[in-house]
C-alpha cells in the first residue's frame, strides 16, 4: 500500500505531475482579491474567511480529474484492479495522495494568505484547524467524483458539477469556524459538524468510490 502512496507522491513531484497547480491557484486568488475588492482592511477582514475557504475548495477541485484519469489512460488502473490490493484501499491511498499534494500545502500557506487579507489575529488558529479538519473531506469526496467520471473524455466539467454540491456543507461550516473565530465567538458547533462530515466521508466514501470504479472499468 505504501508503494502506491510513494509512487503517487513521486509522480506528483516529477515534471508534469501537477503538484503546485492548486497552490498557485490559491496564491493567485489571495493576491487578486484585495486588488478587486479594494484595500480597505475592514472589508477584507470580513470576507477573508469565506475567500480563503473558497480558494482552498476551488484549488482542490482543479486537480480532481487527474486522480484516476492518468492511471486509466495508461492502463495502470486495470492492472491495479487485478492486483492483490483491495480497490477500497487503492481509492483511499489515491485520496490521501491528493490531500498530501494539494490540500496540505494549502493548509501550510493559508496563514500567509490570511495576512494578505487582513485576517484578524484570533482567527489564524481556527483557519489552520478548520482547513486541516475539512480538506480531507474535499479530497475524499473529490475522489468519489473522479471515480464516477473515470473513462469519460474531458470529464473535468462533469466532476465539478457532481462534486460542488457535495462540497457545500464543508465550505459552509469551514468558513463559519473561521468567521466565528475571527469575532471571538465559540466555534464548537461548526467545528463539530465540519469534523463529522470529514470523518463520515472518510469512513464511507472509499467503499462507494471502489464500487463505481469497478463498474467503470468493465
Amino acid at each position: 500500500m505504501s508503494a502506491l502512496l510513494i509512487r503517487d507522491l513521486r509522480l506528483a513531484l516529477r515534471a508534469g505531475g501537477g503538484f503546485g497547480l492548486g497552490l498557485a491557484f490559491f496564491l493567485i486568488l489571495a493576491v487578486l482579491v484585495p486588488l478587486g475588492v479594494g484595500p480597505d482592511p475592514g472589508t477584507l477582514a470580513r470576507i477573508a474567511p469565506g475567500i480563503l475557504w473558497l480558494g482552498a475548495l476551488l484549488a482542490c477541485l482543479l486537480s480532481l480529474d487527474r486522480i484516476f484519469a492518468l492511471d486509466f489512460e495508461d492502463g495502470s488502473l486495470d492492472l491495479l484492479a487485478t492486483a492483490p490490493v483491495p480497490l477500497e484501499a487503492v481509492v483511499t491511498i489515491k485520496a490521501l495522495a491528493h490531500w498530501l499534494t494539494t490540500a496540505l500545502p494549502l493548509v501550510l500557506v493559508s496563514p500567509l494568505m490570511g495576512l494578505l487579507l487582513f485576517l484578524p489575529a484570533e482567527a489564524y488558529l481556527w483557519l489552520i484547524l478548520s482547513l486541516t479538519l475539512g480538506t480531507p473531506a474535499l479530497s475524499v469526496i473529490g475522489t468519489f467524483g473522479a471515480a464516477l467520471t473515470v473513462g469519460l473524455k474531458r470529464g473535468g466539467l462533469l466532476v465539478s458539477l457532481l462534486v460542488l454540491p457535495l462540497y457545500i456543507p464543508t465550505l459552509v461550516f469551514g468558513a463559519e469556524v473561521v468567521a466565528r473565530g475571527a469575532q471571538g465567538l465559540t466555534v464548537a458547533t461548526p467545528l463539530a459538524l465540519l469534523s463529522g462530515i470529514t470523518f463520515g466521508a472518510v469512513a464511507l466514501l472509499p467503499f462507494a468510490s471502489a464500487m463505481v470504479l469497478r463498474i467503470n472499468l468493465r
Binding site: 505504501s2 508503494a3 502506491l4 509512487r7 513521486r10 509522480l11 516529477r14 515534471a15 508534469g16 505531475g17 492511471d71 489512460e73 495508461d74 492502463g75 495502470s76 486495470d78 492492472l79 491495479l80 487485478t82 492486483a83 492483490p84 490490493v85
Partner: peptide, 27 residues
Amino acid sequence: IAYAGHADGIKSTLTVAENLQFWADIY
C-alpha cells in the same frame, strides 16, 4: 492470475526500475 492488456501501465516519469519495483512491492 496476472493480466497484461493492451496498455502496459507504465508511468512515463518514472524510470524502468522504479516502474517494475512498484509492481514488485504491490505483489
